[in-house]
Amino acid sequence: MSSDSSAAPPPARAPFRLPLHWLGAVPFAIFVLLFLIMPTMRIVVGAFQTPEGSFTLENIRGLFTTSILSAYWISIKISIASALLGCLIGFSVASAAVLGGLPKWIRGPLLTFSGVASNFAGVPLAFAFLATLGPVGLITVFLKSQLGIDLRALGFNILSFWGLTITYLFFQIPLMILIITPALDGLKREWREAAQILGATNAQYWRLVAFPILLPSFLGTLALLFANAFGAVATAIALTGSSLSIVPILLFAQIRGDVLGNPHLGYALAFGMIVVTGIANTIYIWLRARSERWLK
């Protein structure tokens, strides 16, 4: 509380000794350098190199072809849709549990379940949705035989934009619940009471106080969910094989067999992914820092 604590006198200077403390961080630094930084740098550098090793912008320019651009575009669309819907639905569920007057015991199981569901991604998740919304899936069959609704005839296909989006939502919604619940808890009772006693209606409280306070976490989580969907490979491949041309699937095929006919175009493709998720996460980190500053 007191601001004086920061003005504490600096610790007394230790007698001179060779500074060897940094040695303790060396193994970690080597690991990170070898298996995180350098591989990534290799991609970034490779994106600007010819096969002979000289500098070029040709690879980046190569991204701007119709097929690659449309792959990025579909990827971005799926990521935005699943992030947006994930945020909205996750927020509704979390606020129902925290503020909606539901029994207290619901929270614990809800958070535990969200923890499990947000980690249940990848290949098995695709199987679960194929078994549910696929051509012979539980819901598809039920709707057709019991209610006479033919999803396929309505244009729905699990191996499509919406199919993938709905599948991604299975881990996006719980992730939103996990991140936004603490933010909802951070809304102090006194803020609501202060607004009320100052004459605000419930709607005014939400519009002027609660929503602006939650907005940074909300937008921040949106960015995180976006990156989360954008980098997802396994679910997409297991669900669609290679029938849907999204960036991760394209890159996967390129690494396996150079389908683009230019190894360095693969670098550029990967570099593009880093740029997109990097932007999303920069937004996330920036907004999160803002909201934490408010809520401390």
């Binding site: 202060a194 006693i197 106080v209």
Partner: peptide, 19 residues
Amino acid sequence: RPNQRNIGMVFQAYALFPN
């Protein structure tokens, strides 16, 4: 209701709107 009473209140934990 509280918002109809025209009362001013100061709370222990300040409760200023952080935004």
